[in-house]
Design a binder for these strands. Structure first.
Length: 620
RNA sequence: CGGGGUGUAGCGCAGCUUGGUUAGCGCGCCACGUUCGGGACGUGGAGGCCGGGAGUUCAAAUCUCCCCACCCCGACCA
């Protein structure tokens, strides 16, 4: 029996971390705490979840929480270490906060209430409120205030890698959206805006290096800062369909943005000299855009002045959508949004624009409270602060001076034709909250945009002075004056990145790790009879590879057929698969070992004497 | 939080409509033997609070109600 036994055979996962400063050891599958599954787990849908469970990397332990098994923990730690190394290389310093925190700091930042049900709250034995931290801006700000008081201490960059807790309404897709997950969060502290710009650029560069090393494809998109406040903000998205974020990218230039952050190009004004005056037309039973357009095209008297082309379409109409804004102080304000009739208002985009207010639908009761609004026939006459309803009226940026519209006449069954913006009506403002569709124009170069989905793996933003002001974080400047510090905040979803890498690299056979994060460099399959020469030969190769610093996963299981071992090797996804099998003869000089690249599936037969140097070079 | 679906052995599933022996099948696991390059085979085993609770009934995996969990869509979300 070639399988060693006893404690020498037990290999701690910690000794397998790539670059972790440990001596490489051979992981033996005969004793590895691992069970691969032949069938897909029924509760897993997305590939990363399905394969990580099936290949024995993770197990579900709680709603939205996963246990890391040895192979998974090695991969996780490899990812974490790469993140840590790149943060350290950029000169950032690692700290660590508790996850269990008192209510007060979050009360000051208003997030105790703003975060709502998404935060896990608990009480201690005296009844004091605590929370499991969803993020740590408050604590970082307080820590710096605690220790620093001079501009000479800045800039400062500190970070932590820590488990975060969020009571997600719907955890899903395994590691991609859990209620407990690991995040690397960094914060920068600067004396002025120029410093913040530099810190932001430094972080951006460090993130690019990090994701490059992780082997993750990514797109950097501009984003709204959302509930976090602040100004400039970019997201790193892994462009994969399983992702939950929708973004646009230009088919011509390098513009990319979260849909919430897209700013549509504003067209030039249109001359309207000679356009006849607006007229009210009787348009019975046309409460929707589609019914209106059909009627316009069907009736001779509803054509454009001096024209009978009959080519009205939804984009010629002006749709006025009424919603309610609920402000943080509890007040509710109606808002009318005018958009071209071939478009809808995108509620996410709208909320991003009106934040921190929340958008709610306008109900039948609300219509009853505003009798001047005729449902289906709402027009600018009823809107605006000078309109009959007094409701604030904002329009899409494409509605510029001179554009002519068909829109509601504020009485049932009536529309107005040839209503011209700037001549016949105006709005209280402009809001860019219309849905973005494939083919919309790029604000940077005017080419067309395409819509794609992505997994958010990183987010950087210039927080500004929001938290510093709330917590009184000031330092003395050169002249002795107290100056409020300006901050940046930067996150990487570490556990999510593991899943994102699996998503981006797997194939139909299983996982397919980039070498930098793989649980081993080489997966050796012993493919011969139990007790045959392949076992000892594989053992020798593994030992020599270990001495050369190559991380080896050795399938030395007895009584397992070669087919099973091959399938498992492909499922586990180590980048290089080595088969010690029938190429092995009595004469070592003529023996060959099979080397397969997991990703390309290319096979090379390497003479036995050259196998260790060959694999060492591959793994370097 | 709304809509839909699913909970039976470690994994994948049948049984439920129409209540009735000891709850089955495949994989995996244990023992012995055969096999040994693409998820082998034979024989013999172990493993179940049928998601939980309350009901209906002589009798509940099966019928009723409540709860919990998981998956999908939506809402929500660094």
């Amino acid at each position: 029996n070639p399988t060693p036994s006893g404690s020498a055979n037990q290999t701690a996962a910690s000794e397998y971390i790539r670059g972790g400063g440990y001596l490489a050891r051979v992981l033996r599958m005969s004793t590895l705490f691992l069970r691969t599954l032949r069938d897909d787990p029924s509760d897993a849908e997305v590939p990363s979840h399905r394969l990580l469970v099936r290949a024995g990397y993770i197990r579900r332990a709680a709603p939205g929480g996963f246990t890391w098994l040895p192979l998974g923990w090695i991969v996780y730690r490899n990812v974490e270490n790469i993140v840590r190394e790149e943060m350290n290389a950029a000169g950032f310093q690692e700290v660590n906060f508790p996850a269990l925190l008192p209510r007060e700091p979050y009360e000051i930042s208003h997030r105790w209430t703003d975060y709502g049900d998404n935060v896990f709250r608990l009480k201690d034995r005296r009844g004091n409120d605590f929370l499991l931290a969803p993020t740590h801006e408050e604590l970082f700000t307080l820590l710096v205030k605690d220790l620093y008081s001079s501009y000479r201490d800045l800039p400062l960059h500190i970070y932590q890698i820590q488990t975060k807790f969020r009571d997600e309404a719907r955890p899903r897709a395994g590691l991609l959206r859990g209620r407990e997950f690991v995040m690397k969060d960094s914060y920068s502290f600067d004396i002025d805006d120029a410093g913040l710009q530099e810190s932001y650029a430094l972080h951006r560069a460090a993130y690019i290096k990090t994701f490059d090393r992780l082997g993750l494809p990514y797109v950097i998109v501009s984003a709204m800062s959302g509930a976090m406040g602040g100004s400039a903000s970019e997201e790193f998205l892994a462009p994969l369909d399983v992702g939950e974020d929708t973004f646009v990218r230009c088919t011509n230039c390098d513009y990319a943005a979260n849909t919430e952050a897209v700013r549509v190009p504003v067209p030039p004004p249109v001359p309207y000299d000679g356009v006849p005056p607006a007229r009210v037309a009787d348009t019975p039973d046309t409460p929707t855009i589609a019914t209106l357009v059909d009627l316009l095209n069907a009736r001779d008297d509803l054509q454009r002045a001096g024209d009978s082309r009959r080519d009205w379409n939804a984009g010629d109409t002006l749709k006025n959508v009424v919603v309610k804004l609920r402000h943080p102080d509890g007040t509710v304000e109606p808002l009318a949004v005018g958009v071209p009739g071939d478009r809808d208002v995108d509620l996410k985009r709208l909320e991003a624009q009106v934040a921190p207010a929340e958008v709610e639908p306008f109900t039948e009761d609300d219509f009853a409270a505003h009798p001047s609004l005729v449902k289906g026939y709402i027009g600018p006459g009823a809107l605006g602060t000078d309109g009959t309803s007094g409701i604030r009226f904002v329009v899409d940026p494409r509605i510029v001076d001179g554009t002519r519209w068909v829109t509601g006449a504020n009485s049932p069954g009536n529309h107005v034709i040839d209503l011209i913006y700037g001549r016949d009506f105006t709005a209280d403002g402009v809001i860019d909250a219309t849905e973005i569709v494939d083919g919309d124009l790029c604000p940077a170069c005017g080419s067309s945009l395409e819509i794609a989905r992505g997994i958010e793996i990183g987010h950087i933003f210039q927080l500004g002075r929001l938290y510093a002001e709330a917590f009184g974080l000031t330092v003395q400047d050169e002249s002795g004056k107290q100056v409020t510090v300006t901050m940046g905040s930067y996150g990487i979803g570490v556990s999510r990145a593991v899943a994102a890498i699996a998503e981006a690299t797997h194939d139909e056979l299983g996982l397919c790790w980039p070498r930098e994060v793989a649980p081993a460099d080489v997966h050796i399959v012993v493919a011969g009879k139990d007790g045959g020469p392949q076992g000892p030969a594989a053992d020798t190769i593994a030992t020599e590879l270990e001495a050369a610093g190559v991380r080896v996963l050795l399938d030395d299981r007895q009584g397992v057929s070669p087919g099973v071992k091959f399938k498992d090797a492909e499922l586990i996804g180590v980048p290089t698969i080595v088969v010690v099998g029938r190429g092995l003869t009595d004469d070592p000089a003529t023996s060959t070992i099979e080397v397969k690249d997991r990703r390309t599936n290319t096979r090379t037969d390497v003479p036995l004497p050259e196998i260790v140097p060959h694999l060492s070079e591959l793994s370097a």
